[in-house]
Deep mutational scan, measured.
Amino acid sequence: TTYYDVLGVKPNATQEELKKAYRKLALKYHPDKNPNEGEKFKQISQAYEVLSDAKKRELYDKGGE
């Protein structure tokens, strides 16, 4: 599973699309609303952290993490 899959976006997604997808999923899986989905929330946050940063995203796209 790639970070793009976690957020449900395509690899060519814009920053705005990433932000929108992250917010939607973060609300859905937030531990306050969904106590059993803490791990999913962490995955979503990690994916967004990497993909929202241009340098980290470039490194990730080249095969790094």
Rank of each mutant, 00 (worst) to 15 (best):
P35W: 06
K40F: 10
F41R: 04
S52M: 10
L59V: 10
A21G: 02
K55A: 13
Q15W: 11
Q15G: 08
Y29S: 03
T14I: 03
T1L: 15
K42M: 09
V9P: 00
E65K: 09
K62N: 11
G63S: 12
K28W: 07
E17R: 04
Y22Q: 01
K28Y: 10
S52C: 08
G8C: 07
Q15V: 12
V6C: 06
E16G: 08
Q46C: 10
E65C: 14
H30Q: 07
V50E: 04
K40P: 04
S52A: 08
N12E: 09
Q43H: 08
L25F: 04
E58L: 09
G64K: 10
L27A: 14
D61P: 03
K20H: 11
K56P: 02
Y4K: 00
Q43N: 07
K55V: 15
L27M: 13
H30Y: 05
K56S: 12
K55W: 09
V9N: 00
R57S: 02
A13G: 02
P11S: 11
Y4L: 02
T1P: 14
K24L: 13
Q46N: 09
G64V: 15
K55S: 11
K33E: 10
L7T: 00
R23K: 13
L7I: 04
Y48M: 05
K24S: 12
K28V: 09
L7R: 00
K19Y: 15
Y22D: 00
K20P: 01
A21C: 04
K10R: 11
E49G: 07
G64Q: 15
P31H: 07
H30V: 05
K33W: 10
Y29L: 05
N34P: 05
D5I: 06
D53L: 03
L18P: 00
E17Q: 10
G8S: 04
N34I: 05
D53V: 04
T14R: 05
R57T: 02
K10F: 08
Y4M: 01
E16M: 09
E37R: 06
T1N: 13
K19L: 15
Y29I: 04
E65N: 13
D5K: 08
D32N: 12
V9A: 03
Y4Q: 01
K42A: 12
N34G: 08
T14F: 02
E39P: 06
K40R: 13
R57H: 03
N34S: 09
V6M: 09
D32V: 10
L18E: 00
P31D: 06
F41T: 02
K28E: 09
N12I: 05
P11N: 08
Y3I: 04
Q46P: 01
D5G: 05
K62Q: 12
E58V: 05
D5T: 08
E39R: 07
N36H: 13
E58R: 07
A54D: 09
Y29W: 06
E39M: 09
K55D: 10
Y48A: 01
N34H: 10
T1E: 11
G8Q: 07
L51V: 03
E17Y: 03
P31I: 06
Y60G: 02
G38C: 13
A54G: 07
Y3L: 13
K40W: 11
D32C: 14
R57M: 03
L51K: 00
Y29H: 05
Y60C: 03
Y48K: 01
Y29T: 04
E37Y: 15
E39W: 13
K10L: 12
R57F: 02
P11A: 10
Y48P: 00
E65Y: 15
D5P: 00
A26C: 14
A54M: 12
D32I: 10
K62G: 07
E49P: 01
R23N: 15
K20S: 14
D61I: 02
Y48Q: 01
Y60Q: 03
S52K: 09
T1H: 12
K20E: 15
T14N: 06
Y22A: 02
T2F: 09
K28M: 14
K28R: 11
Y60S: 03
D32A: 12
K10G: 10
Q46L: 14
